[in-house]
């Protein structure tokens, strides 16, 4: 069932590759034509982003080719790296050291082990219940009461966003959808594709037409024109990908709209946290994109929405 040569998957991945080839060609041609300094800077950024996309698509396709285990491991690593960036930005104290050790090396791998076991019951409660109880207990045992509630809340929040929310994406592979003959891997690819395209289209529409800012204090680059253009375009693409999913075209449009909105909200919330901490990016790992968290902020919010919509509506 998880055979990498599933025809639907091949078509989806082929589409992505075609897009990247087009983006690379357009970037190369425009970079040669650009004359003034500002256009050149924009194109350097565009080409750095395109190159980073090649790498990210390569890593993602490699993981898919390794099947369910490879995919779960990839998302586990993404969670780990995102958590690393998030905790770095979050002030914690000496008394949190051993709690954090548990968070990184026990709770995070445990969540992905549960995903791999397709154990939905524990998947749903491991972090919201068990980690929620464990984190403050471990910190209290360390004996430091200073700013206790704030520290506990920040660690729990980091776990929820970077690990719990992200783990909903590979948990899609555990869904058994009656009457759906496709590969559940294509559902995961659909989610990532629609949400990431929504980010790209919002960026493009915003650059072309962006005038009115949505929340200038939170994210100066988000405009109403980019928001509407990006989400409508990405939802239309999502509707056009109905053949990879158990949805009909209209359902596919509405589901795409829902995950694009959730993705937008994720980007906005994670930006608010960056502004609160006084930084522009979560990290420096991916050139042109910032850190891992800057790239997957929209997935954090879209993955749980998507998993539960499909679970309630189609299983």
């Amino acid at each position: 069932m998880n055979h990498p040569l599933d025809p639907v998957l091949v078509r989806l991945l082929g589409g992505v590759l075609a897009l990247l080839v087009v983006a690379s060609c357009v970037g190369a041609v425009l970079a040669r034509r650009a004359r003034d300094e500002r256009a050149q800077a924009t194109l350097r950024n565009f080409n750095a982003r395109t190159n980073a996309w090649w790498v990210m698509v390569g890593v993602f396709a490699g993981a898919l080719a390794l099947g369910r285990t490879g995919t779960v491991v990839l998302f586990g690593l993404l969670s780990f790296l995102a958590l690393r960036e998030f905790i770095t930005l979050t002030p914690t104290r000496r008394g949190d050291h051993r709690t954090l050790f548990w968070v990184f090396f026990v709770i995070t791998p445990a969540q992905y082990w549960v995903v791999w076991k397709e154990w939905y019951g524990l998947f749903a409660v491991l972090i919201p219940v068990w980690a929620f109880l464990f984190v403050p207990i471990r910190s209290a045992m360390a004996g430091d009461c200073g700013e206790f509630l704030g520290r506990t809340a920040r660690i729990q929040w980091a776990l929820m966003v970077c690990v719990y929310c992200v783990s909903h994406a590979p948990m899609l592979l555990a869904l058994r959808i009656p009457g759906f003959r496709g590969d559940s891997m294509s559902l995961l690819l659909y989610l990532i594709l629609v949400v990431q395209l929504s980010d790209v289209f919002q960026y493009v529409w915003g650059k072309l037409l962006g005038r009115r800012k949505i929340a200038p204090n939170v994210s100066p680059n988000k405009t109403w024109e980019g928001f509407v253009g990006g989400i409508v375009t990405a939802s239309a693409v999502g509707a056009g990908l109905w053949w990879a999913t158990p949805f009909d075209p209209w359902q596919s449009a509405w589901v795409s709209l829902a995950i694009c909105l959730a993705g937008f909200a994720g980007g906005l919330v994670m930006s608010a946290i960056k502004r609160d901490r006084g930084v522009k990016d979560y990290g420096t790992l991916i050139e042109g994109h910032g850190g891992v968290m800057d790239r997957i902020d929209s997935i954090c919010f879209a993955a749980p929405v998507f998993l539960h919509l499909v679970r309630y509506g189609w299983t």
Partner: peptide, 18 residues
């Protein structure tokens, strides 16, 4: 920066903060 968060004095297990 942050080394005291990665491996503070008196600890043996590091936490992977950047």
């Amino acid at each position: 920066e942050n080394m005291n968060r990665i491996l503070p004095k008196g600890e043996i297990l590091p936490v992977p903060v950047l």
